[in-house]
């Protein structure tokens, strides 16, 4: 008896996660400008910043533009994933959150559904950026980048894992903040250091001694490094270490996120 009830409850929870995802997906499809905008900025970074600076900067073994391509992918996922957290603030503001929280599913499922929903958005964005990477390199606009199916496929998996953890961080922040303005403010304090310290724009080999430990503390560093492994074939840390840190970080933030949602006020 007890076991059948558990099985039923688990089915309901999975259905609930599906429901949350369904809603996020519908909203994402309806806000087409968001999809376009999410691809424009990274491409500007890649072509304008990378193209402009690339003439004067040389990275051993590859072109600067190709070198920052993995970092720009990680940056795009970082920004869109963290900003996804603001939707929970909006849900609360428009009272939609009450409808969700009064439904007979656990708050952990609400959280997981949100993570899957936000990660889906970022994965779609990543696919667009990977395809643009292939197209632009075909036209010789990213010198030094040689896309391969396995490399870009692996990059997508790494980006998916990265977004799962970063969406969680965004949602933790969203569960905690009361206003969208507050969210913007606090998230920008989080976003820029995370981006700059990740080594998205520079190699990790010869860092000043004060910078090296900060870079190692930044969880995004390991995503960027893993992406360099699979896209460029060369990186700083071992791929195994990168993946271990990423998985560990994801587990921790998902656990913290579930607790944050448990304590979240309506």
């Amino acid at each position: 008896m007890g076991r059948t009830i558990d099985a039923l409850q688990i089915r309901h929870e999975i259905g609930g996660i599906g429901a949350i995802w369904y809603r996020e997906w519908k909203v994402f499809l309806r806000e087409k400008s968001r999809i376009v905008a999410s691809a424009v900025n990274p491409i500007l970074w890649l072509l304008v910043f990378g193209g402009g600076l690339g003439r004067s900067v040389s990275i051993p073994g590859t072109d600067y533009q190709a070198f920052i391509y993995p970092g720009i992918l990680a940056q795009a996922v970082l920004f869109s994933s963290i900003f996804f957290g603001v939707y929970i603030v909006w849900d609360r503001k428009i009272d939609f959150l009450k409808e969700v929280l009064v439904a007979p599913i656990s708050r952990t499922s609400v959280f997981i559904g949100k993570v899957v929903g936000g990660a889906t958005d970022s994965v779609v964005q990543s696919v667009i950026l990977l395809v643009l990477g292939v197209v632009l390199s075909r036209f010789g606009m990213i010198p030094g980048l040689h896309p391969t199916v396995t490399g870009f496929g692996a990059a997508l998996l790494i980006l998916a894992l990265t977004t799962a953890s970063l969406v969680s961080v965004g949602l933790i922040l969203g569960a905690w903040m009361e206003s969208p303005e507050g969210f913007q403010l606090v998230s920008s304090f989080l976003l820029f250091p995370t981006f700059f310290f990740s080594g998205a724009l520079f190699p990790l080999d010869r860092l000043p001694s004060w910078l090296a430990p900060l870079v190692r503390l930044d969880p995004l560093t390991y995503s960027v490094d893993a992406l360099r492994h699979v896209i460029l074939g060369t990186a700083h840390f071992a791929l195994g270490l990168d993946l271990a840190v990423m998985v560990g970080f994801t587990v921790v933030v998902i656990a913290v996120g579930s607790v944050a949602f448990q304590r979240m006020k309506v």
Binding site: R23, K26, V27, E31, I94, D95, F96, E99
Partner: peptide, 10 residues
């Protein structure tokens, strides 16, 4: 609920 709690983008 007292305030509208449907999602107005759906």
């Amino acid at each position: 609920f007292q305030d509208p709690s449907s999602d107005d983008t759906l």
